[in-house]
Design a protein around this nucleic acid. Structure first.
Lengths: 150, 150
DNA sequence: CCGATTATAAAAATAGTTATCATTATTAAT
DNA sequence: ATTAATAATGATAACTATTTTTATAATCGG
């Protein structure tokens, strides 16, 4: 995980926090930076906490959870619950997508299938539902783990 | 919720528990009976606990959780985690299905769409995944709640 | 019906997360 | 830049859903 930061990156992060209506604080900058410098990766609160500690930061668990929740409310992050009992966060993308989760190594792969999306809308409509969101998660063994579990 | 039980029902429940390799005990019979007499309904551990209390049974929370987990392991029940933070259980059907969840009243509707199922397999295969399970949940407002939220 | 085994209820423990609170940091207005 | 008002922080306690522990009680093969 890289700690290198260009001036551009930092100012962008500050702007994003400001535009969310949140004060620009060290924990918030640091946490957002972890997500921005590791795009497409998914983090638990615990992973963020550990990463901050590793970087020598003095942050509390409460702050991590608070900031993650605030970022989610501000639309910067998206929270997923999968089946693990602990929430997973990722940078909010412009476009919706679903997940493939490896139950062996925890790897998460994103995908989007237009045909599935379209059918979902139809199913909901047929049932009289007004859809607010949907989540599709496929669990299994990724290509790397398939061999090891035999 | 009906408390009526035919002799046939009860003996069937006993048989199911026995065939799972579990001893036939009062809590297990009572819990399985709640599911069998309310087909297609989904229960949390808390709902089962409350129902048992309502029926005048003296059961502990731990027993409810233990039995639900054992029934899941035995293949009698299926556990879902949706996004609520607490597990939901339902009788295991012969066939897989997905869920529409009303975020207003909590109603759960089951559905199955062959086209979605097929695409899921393809997506996983393309990513090199060996699928073990998948869960698709559509959240929204059901037909009854749509009017009330305006 | 007896004895070995397993299940139970109650209580304590645990994991993940959220609330409380005294202190510190941020920001808008000087 | 300083200050005053406000909000954020870290530490800790509390909380929710669930699991483990333990001493007692129920089950079932013989």
């Amino acid at each position: 995980m890289s700690n290198k930061t260009t001036t551009k990156d930092v100012s962008l992060e500050i702007k994003e926090i400001q535009e969310s209506g949140l004060r620009v604080t060290e924990p918030r900058k640091k946490i957002l930076h972890i997500f921005e410098s590791n795009e497409d990766q998914h983090f638990t609160a615990d992973m963020i906490y550990s990463e901050l500690k590793k970087q020598g930061e003095n942050v509390g668990f409460a702050t991590v959870y608070r900031v993650l929740t605030q970022f989610e409310e501000a639309g910067l992050l998206v929270r997923h619950n999968f089946d693990s009992g602990h929430a997973v966060f990722e940078l909010k993308k412009k476009c919706h997508h679903d997940h493939l989760v490896c139950i062996s190594c925890g790897k998460i792969i994103e995908f989007l299938d237009d045909s599935i999306e379209a059918r979902q809308c139809k199913v909901a409509k047929d049932a009289g539902f007004e859809v607010t969101s949907h989540s599709l998660t496929i669990f299994g063994y990724c290509s790397e783990c398939r061999g090891n579990t035999k």
